[in-house]
Simulated scan of single mutants.
Amino acid sequence: MHDTDRDLLPEGLGDRLPTQATAAQRVRREALDVMARHGYARVETPMIEFEKSLASRMANVSVRRMFRFVDPLSLRTLALRSDITVQVGRIAATGLSRAPRPLRLCYGGQVVTVKGDGLDPVRERLQLGVELVGTDSVAAAAEIVEVAIEALAAAGATGISVDFTLPDLVDTLSHEALPLAASRVEKVRQMLDSKDAGGLVDVGGQAYLPLLYAVGPFDAAIERLAKFDVGGVLASRIAGLREIAARVGGKARLTLDPSERHGFEYQSWFGFMIYAENVPGSLGRGGTYRILDSEGGEGEAACGFSLYPDKLIDALAADAAPKDRLFLPLGHDADAAARLRAVGWTTVAALGDGDDALALGCTHRLDGGSAVAL
């Protein structure tokens, strides 16, 4: 019996062929270069860590999203990283605990989850991002939004838009301004998240209905949110959003959805999603959060963002123009070939008499020290 599936890959995993791999390299390089120019120092983290470490540095990180297995050396449970942010939090709290604050770090690498998100079956993704450790101020939040926009633009994204949210909105309102029984808080969050007005009334959250309409283009939505603000409990957050918008408004289209919670498991007062034209779904998210200490208690304030640019990579690869390639015949002038490579040419050297320049995808041929079009 023949093994017919030996070359199949598991669901949600795939190869990148040359055009895609080239686009991925460009996106990674351009985005990380932007982060570095803004003072973010590059760190690298292992693909595998102890499960306990990955699950204990950020609130609400689910180990169920991680591939887990037993380490044959320590006999402890290991996990494949599903989010590099938590690893950077560990670095900040341990190896760089004495480094001056605010601490700026950036990273890039692959992450893997047990299953995809919603209708997206992909289980391995490229994650790029920055973490600004030691503060979650408005100025810090504005900086990370600016860097995220600039990084995506440098990577090739166009028509960038940013959607702001307030992840702790229901917690803030339900404490005093619009009291809710503890058993209803999560239900109200879910109904707001799904934009279900009827469901919101059914779970006792009718006072929160105006939040469903405080969405859309930023200027109009923030005015509706300000009018809704009960007792001024959201005044500082609204002022913060206005300040961030003033700094980044000319660089991207801004919208507001103050009650959006999906994807903001550990963010605190501020969060954002980032999108680009002709790329389906979001390209990343970010916001403010806290890095838990070694005992699981509230530790340092921080903010940052994670970009997941795989769909942008696919779009760039699909639109990539063929690159000129220079065929080097047998016995070619090696010095001339080196000079042409130095000014940007890609060369393909013949290895035998049967090598065909056109079949190898070449557009030019080295002839007498010059590139001649085929």
Rank of each mutant, 00 (worst) to 15 (best):
G216S: 04
P217N: 13
W345G: 03
I244N: 06
G240T: 02
A336S: 10
L32W: 07
L128D: 10
V27N: 02
L358C: 13
G296Q: 00
L73S: 06
A302D: 01
V43P: 06
D355E: 10
R184M: 02
A154M: 05
A359I: 03
E124W: 03
S194L: 05
G249A: 11
A214I: 06
L80G: 01
I149D: 04
A157D: 04
R42M: 06
L73I: 06
E298A: 08
V70H: 07
T255V: 01
F264S: 12
G352N: 13
V86Q: 05
S82R: 00
A246H: 06
D219Q: 11
G354V: 10
T255W: 03
Y107P: 13
L312S: 03
L17Q: 07
L212E: 12
A276P: 00
A337M: 13
A92L: 01
F69K: 13
L169D: 02
M35C: 15
A337F: 06
R98G: 06
Q267G: 06
A350H: 14
D229I: 11
E223L: 10
D83N: 09
F305N: 01
Q267Y: 14
M35G: 09
R325K: 12
Y107W: 13
T85K: 00
D3G: 13
G369W: 09
S194G: 03
H332R: 15
D333M: 09
V215G: 02
Q206Y: 05
V372D: 07
D171Q: 09
L119H: 11
I160Y: 03
Q267N: 15
A182T: 04
E30D: 14
Q206F: 05
G281V: 08
A154K: 05
G199Y: 14
E260K: 00
D319N: 11
C362Y: 02
D314N: 09
E44G: 02
P329T: 04
T45E: 01
L128V: 05
A318W: 09
W269Y: 15
T255D: 09
A148I: 10
A139K: 04
V372A: 12
A349E: 15
T135A: 07
A357K: 03
T77V: 10
E243W: 07
S56F: 02
